[in-house]
């Protein structure tokens, strides 16, 4: 058999696909060779409301992690760590399922306005 090394754009040679690539450069059949590379695609800008963590209230039960549709609760060593705002779409489920109300949802516009105001004060 001929070795699989003379494929025109049909192999694993295009790790990062770009829009300007021609048909010879793109992966064969639209295969994707980087598992989970959707993580490099940000959906955080879909968000209109933002979950904010109340550290003092959190009991690290990780119910929020369990119910996040976007895998946007980052946990470290079995504890709540942070929100992945690059992917969080602001659905509000985490705040809704939290048994101790340790997550508050704030309007992104409101947060922007406050940031703006704070900058102006400084």
């Amino acid at each position: 058999m001929t070795p699989f090394n003379r494929n025109f754009g049909q192999g694993r040679n295009t790790k990062a696909v770009r829009l300007d690539m021609n048909w010879k450069e793109l992966t064969k059949a639209g295969n994707i060779y980087e598992p989970g590379n959707a993580a490099t695609y940000e959906t955080g800008d879909w968000r209109t409301i933002r979950p904010v963590w109340n550290k003092d209230r959190c009991i690290h039960c990780l119910i929020c992690w369990r119910y996040c549709p976007d895998a946007s609760i980052i946990s470290t060593d079995g504890k709540f760590d942070s929100f992945d705002y690059k992917h969080c779409k602001g659905c509000g489920i985490c705040a809704s399922v939290c048994p101790v109300h340790a997550i508050d949802m704030f309007s992104e516009d409101e947060i922007d306005r406050r940031e703006e105001a704070r900058k102006n004060e400084e």
């Binding site: 989970g36 959707a38 993580a39 695609y41 549709p69 976007d70 895998a71 946007s72 779409k89 659905c91």
Partner: peptide, 18 residues
């Protein structure tokens, strides 16, 4: 290890993601 990562384009709050 997470097998279904963020960055998918399901609607916000879609039951499928959960």
């Amino acid at each position: 290890e997470e097998r279904f990562v963020g960055g998918h384009r399901l609607c916000a709050g879609c039951g499928h993601g959960i």
